[in-house]
């Protein structure tokens, strides 16, 4: 097993789901729940004759950052694209539910509990959503995750990390959007419809899925940061993601609510102002919106080193 200190400088993009999970929390604090030794392989994949994984492609567990209990969900994109089936879905749902129940237990048990001692949920996304091999069960599990996210509101903050190769798309694009805070690296991608499907719908002239720069401009970390869809943009290391989570641990639940993009009538009204802008602008490219946000040389932002990007970029205000 890789030593914890060696995990910290590692590329978040390249790391495995388990290394991300272990590296995000304090050294030696991670306990995996329903891990590979429990052999939770999918019988639905086996029925189709497809390879199985002992953890069904999702790492779930609990660790600590400082005094904060952190429930971690980490998806593994190398196993069937991080797709969510019956077991992986149940693992996600249960991790969030355990965090909520633990919160309630602690609040009942300690009358002097401070914010830092209350649990957090961190989800590292690497998925296109539903696993087609067991699609119905996967779909129903997505709805359960959303239900748990709403149940966590006002109690347990849920933080999304998106810095993986696959990104967060499909039904898990909804789930990521519904979390309290989104932390991305510039290599992370967030959306609903994958590039291939957009190309199929609109034609190659409108959207060329093989154009990687275009794909990143449309759904990548830099764009999502400018749009306000990502709250934080960090370097591509396990340590950078960990540091950002650590900086958030202990904030009040009200502070987390404020960071949400959606989840109330007022936030929906703000989003509708952005939608009105979309209708008015009909942007042909994401950089049109960057310009509108006040970035005079939008194209220069694409390749600017991250610290300079963060120092100079203007984010869209609507």
């Amino acid at each position: 097993m890789t030593h914890w200190t060696d995990l910290q400088p590692r590329s978040f993009l390249e790391a495995s789901a388990r290394d991300r999970a272990i590296g995000l929390v304090d050294e030696g604090s991670f306990t995996e729940l329903a891990g590979p030794f429990d052999r939770v392989t999918s019988p639905h994949l086996a029925l189709l004759g497809d390879a199985v994984a002992f953890d069904d492609g999702i790492v779930t567990g609990v660790g600590k950052i400082g005094r904060t209990p952190v429930f971690v969900i980490s998806q593994e994109g190398r196993f069937i694209g991080g797709s969510v089936g019956e077991i992986g879905g149940a693992k996600m749902v249960t991790a969030i539910k355990l965090a909520i129940d633990f919160h309630d237990d602690l609040v009942a048990q300690f009358d002097d509990l401070d914010e830092e001692e209350k649990p957090l949920v961190v989800i590292s996304f690497e998925t296109g959503g539903v696993r087609l091999h067991e699609a119905n069960a996967g779909l129903l599990a997505h709805a359960e995750v959303m239900d748990q996210l709403q149940k966590a509101r006002g109690k347990v903050p849920v933080i999304a990390l998106i810095g993986s190769k696959v990104g967060a798309f499909g039904g898990m694009g909804f789930v990521a959007a519904a979390t309290d805070v989104i932390i991305m690296s510039e290599f992370g991608r967030l959306g609903l419809t994958g590039p291939e499907v957009i190309e199929q719908e609109m034609g190659k002239e409108e959207f060329d899925a093989s154009d990687r720069a275009l794909v990143y401009r449309t759904t990548g970390g830099r764009h999502k940061f400018i749009m306000g869809d990502a709250n934080f943009l960090v370097e591509n290391t396990v340590a950078a993601f960990r540091d950002q989570v650590s900086a958030l641990a202990g904030l009040s639940i009200e502070a987390f609510e404020e960071m949400r993009r959606i989840g109330s009538s007022a936030k929906v009204k703000a989003q509708l102002r952005a939608v009105a802008l979309a209708a008015e602008m009909q942007p042909g490219d994401a950089t049109d919106v960057w310009t509108r946000a006040g970035n005079t040389d939008a194209h220069a932002l694409i390749d600017l080193p991250l610290p300079e990007f963060l120092a100079t970029v203007r984010r869209l205000a609507v």
Partner: peptide, 20 residues
Amino acid sequence: PGKVEEIFGMNKSTAAYQLA
């Protein structure tokens, strides 16, 4: 499923409805 939809974050719109 469009480009403008992805630029402005279609995932937020339907997630907003689910949360509501």
